[in-house]
Amino acid sequence: MAMSDVPGLVLETLKSAEARGFKLSCEEMVGRLLAALASAVPPGGRVLELGTGAGVGAAWLVSGLEHRSDVTVLTLERDPELAAAAREFAWPEWVEVRVADVEKELPELGRFDLIFADAEGGKWSGLDLTVSALQPSGVLVVDDMDLSRYPSIKHRESVTRVRDTILSDPRLVAVDLPVSSGIMVAAKRRD
C-alpha cells in the first residue's frame, strides 16, 4: 500500500517509533483493521487500547474515528517514558494516554465498545479482565497470534493459550485471521 494513503498522524507515530528504536508497533494491516472497526463504534462509544507503545495503534484508531468527538479513546501504557513520548502528538481532546498497570486498572474502567489488546497485561495475562471489559456486542482485537513468529516453545505455548481462550470463551464469537502478525477478532455476545 502506498504511504500516501497512510494517515498523517500514523506517519508521525511511525517516524517517532523508528527514531526511538521501538520495533513493537502494530503492523499496517492491523492498523487498517483498527481504523475500520473504530469507524463503526456507536455514538457515545468508548475505545480502549492496551499497550500504547509509540502511539501507532492509537493513531490508526483515531484515523478511523476522524473528528468524532462523541467517542473517547483511552490508551494505557505501563512504561512512563513511552507514554510521555506518545503524549507529545497532537491527539484530539477525546484521546487520553495514561500510564497504568493494565491488570490493576482494567476492572475499574468500565466497559468498552472496542478493545485492542496489544500489551502483556490484558492479553498474555489477565485476558479474562479484558473480555469482561467489553460491552455486549463490543469487539476485541488481538494481534501477534501467528505461531510461526515465535521460536521459543514458551512463547508458542502462550500464543496457543490466548488463541484457545478466545476461541472457546462462550461469551465471544471469534475468528482467527492468519494474516499480518496473526489477528484474532471477537465480538462479545449480547447479555
Rank of each mutant, 00 (worst) to 15 (best):
E88K: 14
L76Q: 03
V185K: 07
M1A: 15
L34I: 08
T165F: 10
E49H: 04
A36D: 06
V97I: 14
L37S: 10
L11G: 09
A54H: 04
L61G: 02
R171F: 06
A19K: 12
V139Y: 01
F89C: 04
Q135N: 13
L33K: 08
V99F: 01
L48R: 08
V162P: 04
E49M: 03
Q135A: 15
V162W: 03
E157S: 12
G44E: 10
P92T: 04
P43E: 14
L24V: 04
S132W: 00
E18V: 06
R20E: 14
K104W: 00
L9Y: 09
T165D: 04
L74E: 09
D113W: 00
L140V: 07
L114N: 05
I115N: 02
S152W: 07
A2M: 09
P151I: 00
K23R: 15
V142F: 06
A54R: 03
E108S: 14
I166V: 15
A2I: 07
E49S: 04
H155C: 06
R189F: 11
E18G: 01
V99N: 05
L109I: 00
A100D: 04
L37Q: 11
L65W: 09
R68M: 03
G21Y: 04
S180H: 08
R171Y: 02
Y150A: 08
D128P: 07
E81I: 06
L129P: 10
G53N: 02
Q135M: 13
A54P: 03
E49I: 03
W91P: 09
E103A: 11
A187F: 02
G110D: 03
D113N: 13
Y150Q: 05
A59Q: 06
L34P: 10
V139W: 01
S63H: 08
G44P: 12
S180C: 13
R32W: 10
D143K: 11
M1L: 12
K23F: 01
A86M: 04
L24N: 07
I153S: 15
F116N: 03
V179I: 14
L134G: 12
V56I: 12
D101P: 00
G51H: 07
D146M: 11
H155N: 15
V175E: 07
L109D: 00
G53R: 03
K23N: 12
K104I: 05
L34D: 08
E77H: 05
M145S: 12
E157V: 12
I115P: 05
